[in-house]
């Protein structure tokens, strides 16, 4: 069970965003896509989600080109939590989570299967408490969990999240990370774009580091998060050390001196 990209290239108005990306993503793993602003992380994630068609190269799911899959079938397999936590109408949290069932719906109304999946997603994210509250009245932390529940409700094999921690306080960020981790441990393929290197070090099984539209490094934490790579890609001077519990931690000292 893999998502694979081969020689993926993408450009907006002749400005290259991604060039020749080759990468493999495994089910049952929490993969984090890293890279500085403008490195092409969101573009790569959108290509994996099948909502952006690369100019050359392919993104494929178990060997099938994602852009050639029927959109509904693709949506059942690959769930995307888009950037920006966008919601437009004051609908209830439960109604928002139910939107995740759209790829499964035929005809009007919700089936027993839909209702089971919705309530499972809401209980996994501890959002049942405000099921009937309009999403516009939720706090940032509650809203982030409801939006994740929306993705989980679709029961996709793959969960793609674009900056799911943006604008959240550390406690809520950890809630979301633990939820994503749980999904990976339950066998789902989880791929998230993150900005926070410290979280990436602690939560990721696999890392993909992008730099200026190219794949700079991929592999385990030890292979990718090295002081040399961080200096080259982010221009930062960072230390890695083991804490008293033996977990790898990252400390950013400052910018690299020119």
């Amino acid at each position: 069970m893999t998502l694979t990209v081969r020689n993926l290239c993408f450009a907006y108005a002749h400005q290259p965003i991604l060039e020749g990306i080759d990468a493999t993503f495994d089910a049952g793993k929490f993969t984090v896509i890293l890279g500085p602003n403008g490195a092409g992380k969101s573009t790569l994630l959108a290509s994996l989600a099948g909502i952006l068609k690369p100019q050359t190269g392919t993104a494929s799911l178990h060997g099938t080109d994602i852009t050639r899959m029927p959109p509904t079938a693709r949506a059942r397999q690959i769930g995307l939590l888009p950037q920006g936590a966008e919601t437009h109408w004051a609908i209830s949290s439960e109604a928002l989570v139910a939107l995740g069932r759209i790829p499964h719906m035929r005809g009007a109304g919700t089936s027993a299967d839909d209702r089971r999946a919705i309530s499972a997603a809401m209980s996994a994210t501890a959002t049942e408490g405000f099921a009937h509250r309009p999403v516009t009245l939720l706090s940032g932390g509650e809203r982030a969990r409801v939006l994740l529940a929306r993705v989980l409700a679709g029961e996709p094999e793959w969960i793609l999240a674009d900056e799911p921690l943006a604008n959240l306080d550390p406690g809520f960020q950890l809630d979301i990370l633990h939820l994503l981790r749980q999904q990976a441990e339950a066998g789902k393929g989880v791929i998230a774009v993150l900005h926070d290197l410290q979280y990436a070090v602690r939560f990721a099984d696999h890392l993909v580091l992008l730099h200026q539209g190219r794949l700079f490094a991929q592999g385990g934490v030890d292979d990718v998060i090295t002081p040399a790579n961080l200096a080259d890609v982010y221009g930062i001077d960072a230390n890695l050390f083991k804490d008293e519990e033996g977990a790898v931690q990252l400390f950013i000292k400052g910018k690299v001196r020119p």
């Binding site: 989600a49 099948g50 690959i78 995307l80 888009p82 966008e86 919601t87 109408w89 939107l99």
Partner: peptide, 9 residues
């Protein structure tokens, strides 16, 4: 309701 990318996905 989830924005254009949400709808596409």
């Amino acid at each position: 309701t989830l924005g254009e990318n949400g709808a596409k996905s």
